[in-house]
Simulated scan of single mutants.
Amino acid sequence: MFSPVQSKPRLDLDSTDHAIIELLQQDGRASVAQLARAISMSPSATADRVRRLTDGGVITGYSVTVDPEALGYTVTAFVRLAYPTGNYKPFHDLADSLPEVIEAHHVTGADCFIIKVLARSMRDLERITGRLATLGGITTNVVYSSPVPSRHITPA
């Protein structure tokens, strides 16, 4: 389910917190013992830091990164949707029913949503965009390549 942006109180992060965040972004499977060795702290103090970062909403989860093509998704596209109403429930319901929709962002400007879609083929992309077009006008951009596919986030 999509939720509106909410302001949370920020944790005060120090260089040790930054190091933990960087290490976990490089290897989310790193054990507490490995993290502790890398930052020169005890495992219990490191576990406390990770717990504080998680409880404070800085670390929001752990995941594995996969190659979409290895799973049969050969086409990546961004679909801009000009949604004509303020009732977003139909959009949320449709996005939830399409596993090929891997990101959706409510944005400013002429379009209401920018949606990242993975498809098995151009025909599959046509099926997906046809479903999205039932909600409003769409513009589709197919990705040729991604020179910067994803970056780790550094503290602001």
Rank of each mutant, 00 (worst) to 15 (best):
7 S>G: 09
49 R>V: 01
18 H>C: 14
28 G>W: 05
108 T>S: 12
25 Q>Y: 12
83 Y>G: 02
30 A>N: 09
150 S>L: 10
104 A>E: 07
57 G>S: 04
55 D>V: 04
122 M>T: 15
86 G>C: 05
143 V>T: 14
1 M>T: 12
77 A>G: 06
9 P>M: 10
23 L>T: 05
49 R>G: 00
56 G>E: 03
150 S>N: 14
78 F>A: 11
62 Y>T: 12
78 F>V: 12
140 T>Y: 02
125 L>K: 00
39 I>T: 04
82 A>V: 05
150 S>W: 14
27 D>R: 05
90 P>D: 02
72 G>I: 01
64 V>N: 13
132 L>E: 03
16 T>E: 05
18 H>W: 15
60 T>D: 11
4 P>F: 15
129 T>W: 07
127 R>G: 15
85 T>H: 08
14 D>H: 09
116 K>P: 04
24 L>P: 00
155 P>H: 13
23 L>Q: 06
95 A>D: 00
110 A>H: 12
155 P>K: 10
38 A>S: 12
5 V>W: 05
55 D>K: 08
53 L>Y: 10
38 A>Q: 09
147 P>G: 08
86 G>R: 05
28 G>V: 09
47 A>T: 13
66 V>K: 07
80 R>D: 09
1 M>Q: 06
95 A>C: 03
89 K>I: 07
93 D>F: 09
21 I>Q: 00
69 E>F: 15
104 A>T: 06
11 L>D: 02
82 A>P: 09
70 A>V: 08
60 T>N: 04
119 A>N: 01
41 M>D: 08
33 A>V: 14
113 F>E: 01
119 A>I: 01
69 E>V: 10
136 G>W: 01
125 L>F: 03
107 V>S: 12
7 S>P: 07
130 G>V: 06
31 S>D: 10
91 F>M: 05
34 Q>H: 07
17 D>W: 03
14 D>K: 02
96 D>E: 13
81 L>C: 03
61 G>V: 02
113 F>D: 00
58 V>H: 04
126 E>Y: 13
104 A>K: 01
142 V>E: 10
91 F>Y: 08
89 K>H: 13
72 G>C: 07
11 L>S: 06
51 R>V: 08
53 L>I: 06
132 L>F: 12
19 A>E: 02
12 D>M: 10
137 G>P: 02
32 V>S: 02
25 Q>M: 13
27 D>H: 14
89 K>A: 15
67 D>Y: 13
81 L>H: 01
105 H>E: 07
151 R>D: 13
118 L>A: 11
67 D>F: 15
45 A>W: 02
59 I>Q: 09
45 A>E: 09
48 D>E: 15
122 M>E: 11
29 R>Q: 11
17 D>T: 03
35 L>G: 00
120 R>I: 15
108 T>I: 11
99 P>M: 07
105 H>M: 15
83 Y>D: 03
128 I>E: 00
54 T>H: 08
112 C>V: 07
104 A>Y: 04
131 R>V: 06
50 V>K: 01
86 G>M: 06
121 S>Q: 09
81 L>Q: 00
90 P>Y: 12
149 P>C: 07
151 R>W: 14
34 Q>C: 10
150 S>Y: 15
92 H>D: 10
77 A>H: 03
58 V>A: 04
50 V>N: 01
76 T>K: 08
25 Q>P: 00
128 I>A: 06
102 I>V: 13
88 Y>T: 05
105 H>V: 10
140 T>H: 03
9 P>E: 12
